[in-house]
């Protein structure tokens, strides 16, 4: 059963085998949860929103076109639900959502002296957690889901150019932090 493709599972669920939906849940829950946790910066909320996303997906499964890719369709639900949650909480969403000209101030509240290679790895992963919602979505979809920029642009309903700009800026911002550390001596 676990070797079934997404579309085969969906067809089975549509035929009335509702329990097969659990296969899709198990397939996507951790990666979607990682994306939500990085977008919402809160574990409890991320799990709550993820449950809503799966319920929405289950209810809308009858409308799902089998020629489309389930992952793209599902992550669009995840992304939009997370944005709704963020806007509902009246966070500073304008700075995160409206423009790709956002300022990535990743090192605002602390000073970190990197001495060890392992420390650097931890440092970079700590910075990843600080990325704004839109940027972290791009990073998660690109590196965790191995989506192409075209697929990510479908999920986030924006142009491929915007996605590339966000991806490059995220990397550059992390790279700039790295260049400020002692680690740059190791690079050459």
């Amino acid at each position: 059963m676990k070797n079934l493709t997404d579309l085969e599972i969906i067809e089975s669920v549509k035929k009335g085998n509702h329990s097969d939906f659990a296969l899709l849940v198990d397939r996507y829950r951790n990666k979607a949860f990682s994306m939500l946790k990085r977008m919402l910066k809160n574990e409890m909320e991320a799990e709550e929103v993820l449950q809503d996303c799966f319920l929405k997906a289950f209810k809308s499964l009858q409308n799902f076109r089998l020629e489309a890719k389930f992952s793209t369709w599902f992550y669009r639900i995840v992304y939009n639900t997370a944005l709704t949650k963020i806007s509902g909480k009246k966070r500073k969403i304008e700075s995160e959502m409206s423009s790709i000209d956002d300022h990535l101030n990743l090192r605002s509240n602390y000073d970190y002296q990197v001495t060890e290679r392992e420390d650097f790895s931890k440092f970079i992963h700590m910075l990843i957690e600080k990325l704004p919602a839109k940027y972290s979505s791009v990073i998660n979809l690109f590196y965790l889901e191995n989506m192409t920029c075209e697929e990510i642009s479908e999920v986030m309903e924006t142009s491929v150019t915007n996605i590339k700009v966000m991806l490059y800026r995220s990397r550059n911002a992390l790279r700039d932090e790295l260049m400020k550390t002692n680690y740059e001596k190791e690079l050459l």
Binding site: S34, F120, L144, R175, L178
Partner: peptide, 17 residues
């Protein structure tokens, strides 16, 4: 530096529900 960042991003942590 960019390649190092790219490499670290490739090892991005998967959180579990």
């Amino acid at each position: 530096a960019l390649q190092r960042v790219h490499g670290e991003l490739g090892k991005i942590k998967i959180y579990e529900t």
